[in-house]
Nucleic acid binder design. Structure first.
Length: 163
DNA sequence: CTCCGCCTACCAA
DNA sequence: TTGGTAGGCGGAG
């Protein structure tokens, strides 16, 4: 069973999906995204409730351009091995720093999988907390972003990144 | 197998 | 600086 929870922030209402393993999905405000059976019950298990709070606080920190103190464990089990390796690499990019898709490809030991890295970024189930917005195209060009380039620019701006 | 994509390096205007 | 393009790789059907 998964729990779909609405998380209000200064930048709108995000929707998070939690599994028993942790945060499995995070959606930008007004962005529908399907999924299987979900429980949207109001009285959540204690553990989930804690994760919800942590997620909300982590988001606010990121919006302020600061690294988050704590976040729920990420449940990335839905991704392929390749995607998971990319997502884990993204999670290591410090606030305010950026890498190119090529650099990420090298970081995971698959230097030629540049375009595939882009694909994995697009499939990132937990944007913002897994900072796919810190990956730019070669030459510090903006590149793409599933949640809309808008968000990518705003998140980077908050972190003081100049394109 | 085929088609597509948050890419790149390269070459031509 | 633009614009078109072929190569390369993983994911989805």
């Amino acid at each position: 069973m998964k729990y779909s929870v609405s998380i209000p922030t200064v930048r709108g209402e995000f929707t998070a999906v939690f599994s028993e393993r942790g945060l499995a999905e995070l959606n930008f405000p007004d962005q529908r995204r399907e999924a299987g059976d979900r429980c949207t019950s109001k009285d959540l298990p204690r553990q989930i409730e804690v994760w919800v709070q942590q997620t909300g606080r982590a988001l606010e920190e990121i919006f302020r351009g600061k690294p988050f103190q704590e976040a729920p464990p990420f449940d990335l089990s839905q991704g392929t091995n390749f995607q998971q390796s990319v997502w884990r690499a993204l999670a290591k990019i410090p606030t305010g720093r950026t890498l190119s898709y090529g650099e990420v490809a090298r970081a995971i030991g698959n230097p030629k999988a540049v375009r595939a890295v882009g694909g994995a970024c697009g499939a990132n189930p937990i944007p913002v907390l897994i900072p796919c917005h810190r990956v730019l195209a070669a030459g510090k060009k903006i590149g793409g972003f599933g949640g809309g380039l808008d968000w990518k620019r705003r998140l980077l701006a908050a972190e003081g990144v100049i394109l």
